[in-house]
Amino acid sequence: MRPFGTAALIFAAMALGGFSGHALAASYDFVPAPQTDLNRIYRIDRITGEVSSCQYGLQEGTIGVTLCFSAGEGAGPQAPGEYGLVASRHEREGGVFRVNYRTGQMSICYVFDERVVCTPQTTPSPATSSAAAPVSTPSVSPGTGASPQRP
């Protein structure tokens, strides 16, 4: 009887759950900026939440250059989690949302002064959520010509 080879042992360990799916998963996700006339791509480290960005740039006498922007204020590593990027559907938005799928926290990241910056991560509280509190429209007296304003 021949002993099992290394490959067979690795396969058996994987079949028994010895390796998690995260060990085989990609470390980064990439999302384009929603702005339709901007060729910028954002990159996020799925574990640390660190965000960076690159885009194409023209340079005379060449085919062009890749301009990259490293993590600046708020865009560096966060508490370990399960992070991703979500682009809005706003066609003139140059930034993206950084989301933590485990905690529900979100922040907005964008390029500013040649660095990627992100707002502090936050989770809307139930009291301030638009789903929890209906928005009332201010009343307008007839004949004033005024239009309702959002509070």
Rank of each mutant, 00 (worst) to 15 (best):
Gly64Phe: 01
Ser20Lys: 11
Gln55Arg: 12
His90Pro: 00
Leu38His: 03
Ser70Arg: 13
Glu73Ile: 08
Gly95Phe: 00
Leu24Ile: 15
Gly21Thr: 00
Thr103Asp: 06
Glu91Pro: 03
Tyr28Gly: 02
Ser27Leu: 13
Ala12His: 03
Gln78Tyr: 05
Leu67Cys: 05
Cys68Ile: 05
Glu82Gln: 14
His90Asn: 13
Glu82Asn: 15
Phe97Cys: 01
Ala79Pro: 01
Glu73Asp: 05
Pro80Val: 09
Gly57Leu: 06
Gln55Val: 00
Phe30His: 14
Phe69Tyr: 15
His22Met: 11
Leu85Phe: 04
His90Ala: 13
Gly49Glu: 08
Gly74Glu: 08
Gly74Val: 03
Tyr56Asp: 14
Tyr101Trp: 15
Pro34Lys: 08
Gly49Ile: 02
Glu50Pro: 06
Ala13Gln: 11
Gly64Pro: 06
Glu50Val: 05
Asp45His: 12
Gly84Val: 01
Val99Cys: 12
Gly17Trp: 01
Pro80Ala: 14
Ala79Met: 15
Ala87Asp: 06
Gly18Ser: 05
Ala15Lys: 04
Gly84Asp: 15
His90Thr: 08
Ile44Phe: 04
Ala12Trp: 06
Gly84Asn: 10
Leu67Phe: 07
Gly84Lys: 01
Ala71His: 02
Arg92Gln: 05
Thr103Glu: 11
Arg98Val: 07
Thr66Gln: 13
Gln59Ser: 11
Glu93Thr: 04
Ser53Gln: 09
Ala33Val: 08
Val86Met: 12
Arg102Ile: 10
Ala79Cys: 14
Ile63Tyr: 11
Arg102Tyr: 11
Thr103Gly: 11
Phe11Met: 12
Arg43Pro: 03
Ala25His: 15
Ala13Asp: 04
Arg43Cys: 05
Glu50Leu: 10
Pro80Met: 12
Thr103Ile: 08
His22Arg: 15
Arg40Ser: 01
Ser52Arg: 09
Gly74Ile: 09
